[in-house]
Amino acid sequence: MSQIFAQGLVCPLDKNNVDTDQIIPKQFLTSVSREGFAEALFYDWRYLANEQPNPDFVLNAPQYQGASILLTRANFGCGSSREHAPWAIQQYGFNVIIAESFADIFFNNSINNGMLLISLSASNIEFLFSRCQQGTQEWKIDLAGQQIILGNNAAVGFQIDPDIKQRLLSGLDFIGASEQFAEHISSYEQQRAAAHPWLG
């Protein structure tokens, strides 16, 4: 059964090792809110020193306005653990990121916000970038069927951890899910206190 998790315009960000300092610079981290980070996304690349939009940055190109799928390269999201990075990406409008690989903490943070991160082989990533060079792309993401539907009967399959897939499909509150193990936690605490009393 096909289930479309997301669909929309693709923005190609042709860079490796995009770090969280680029995704959202430090000056936006002093907020106590979870909201309001869309404007901060890729700030140093997106805006010139005079705060005018940088016409050379891909996100500012007219054809990519309204994009909701981000295509990029290896090790996306490396660096700091700031969850402000996926917040900014999601609040800007991207709910899917396709890359060769992701940094671990960034990956978890994104999943915890209900975003879908898809890792593909370098050759598949290259293929998708070449599609983008041919013209703007609108893709559909079939999460249940694990494929990116490119249109005209073309699709690229992807792998995803079954536990993560289930979480994204069910939209489960992960704290609530863990709280169902409250009795296990209590008994672990008792056993821990008895075996290693110095741990507190």
């Binding site: 979870r34 653990s81 700031r82 969850e83 996926p86 903490i105 978890n108 943070n109 915890n112 916000n113 992960f174 704290i175 863990s178 709280e179 193990f181 409250a182 936690i185």
Partner: peptide
Amino acid sequence: GTSEVEHVLAT
């Protein structure tokens, strides 16, 4: 990340 901080605080 912060969602996980919340998870650890709670559980």
